[in-house]
């Protein structure tokens, strides 16, 4: 178990290093930020001063090492637009984002998992078909379309709810529903197939053939085993709590991390983009790590197992 844990930790570290390296490589490939920020018609002395101020005149490997150590020490640079620390700019947006994504996650779990289990237990029934059609629809309707449709109906036509902004909890209702429905569809679909796979296993048939009540077969044998793959997708959802609302925040003018990212990309504010990229990757990697460890607890076979 300890070995399993160390291995996963090592792997997470490698992945995180790759993300940092990736961010650096794209930064280098993006060309000279001096030209981009100052404009190509700026006087050469000004551009030179800018390059020196940002350390752009040093050899690449020096830049890489200093970049790496800066990232490790939590210094993610300053916004090239307003000069504030990128990390401050980003972290002050996190509560707003979580205010949308946490309730949405709860909504996904509350709708998605029971719907998936119900559909699997009543395979090919009308309810199952309904759940599946809704699940496919939920997956294929992009969040911006769903969000705008909700605005059109509930804000424009009925006038029940505000269409955007962050003034009160009522402003959060439509974005949370938009986020929740799509995720619930994915989760329902996934839970259903995980459940169906488990229900087809010989040990389930054995348990029910030897007279165990169907209720107990489901709750003791099927659910715990179906939980294993489902945990992965939930882990992915938790990992994307910060990043999952990029589009929806833009639709509803919600001042969270996602909207900051979109404006930063449009303005090519590289420090902010990098900061968000690293933060999202770190969240995601941590969530994956936790999922792996949960796997180890849920699935005894994996405890001493090798990576591949």
């Amino acid at each position: 178990m300890l070995r399993f844990f160390t291995f996963r930790l090592l792997r997470a570290a490698v992945t995180l290093t790759m993300v940092v390296t990736f961010a650096f490589l794209v930064l280098i490939a993006s060309g000279d930020p001096a030209d981009i920020i100052m404009g190509s018609d700026a006087p050469p002395e000004a551009i030179e001063a800018f390059r020196q101020a940002w350390g752009l005149d040093r050899p690449i490997w020096v830049q890489y090492l200093s970049y790496f150590s800066a990232v490790l020490s939590g210094d993610l640079g300053r916004s090239m637009r307003d000069g504030r620390d990128a990390i401050v700019l980003v972290t002050e947006r996190i509560p707003a984002t979580l205010a949308l994504t946490l309730p949405a996650l709860a909504l996904k779990l509350v709708i998605g998992i029971p719907a998936g289990i119900y559909a699997a237990l009543h395979r090919n029934s009308l309810a199952d078909r309904m759940v599946m059609v809704l699940a496919v629809a939920g997956f294929t309707i992009p969040s911006f379309v769903l969000g705008l449709l909700l605005v059109l109906v509930f804000a424009v036509q009925l006038g029940w709810l505000p269409s955007g902004g962050q003034e009160s909890w009522r402003h959060a209702i439509l974005p949370v529903i938009t986020l929740g429905i799509g995720g619930a569809a994915v989760l329902a679909r996934f839970t259903r197939s995980a459940m169906l796979e488990v229900l087809g296993q010989p040990y389930i048939r054995t348990a029910s053939a030897k007279g165990v009540a169907w209720r107990d077969v489901v709750s003791r044998h099927a659910l715990p085993n179906a939980a294993i793959p489902t945990v992965t997708i939930i882990g992915f959802m938790v990992g994307s709590l910060l990043a999952g609302a990029v589009v929806v925040e833009s639709v509803f003018s919600w001042p969270g991390v996602g909207r900051l990212l979109v404006t930063a990309v449009a303005n090519r504010d590289l420090a902010v983009v990098q900061c968000i990229l690293l933060l999202v990757a770190a969240t995601m990697i941590t969530a994956n790590l936790v999922v792996d460890l949960l796997y180890g607890l849920l699935d005894p076979r994996l405890r001493g197992a090798r990576s591949h």
């Binding site: 993300v19 990043a243 999952g244 990029v246 979109v262 990309v265 983009v273 990229l277 999202v280 990757a281």
Partner: peptide, 9 residues
């Protein structure tokens, strides 16, 4: 390990 939308952005 990274949501593709973020990578793309």
């Amino acid at each position: 390990s990274i949501p593709f939308l973020i990578l793309a952005l």
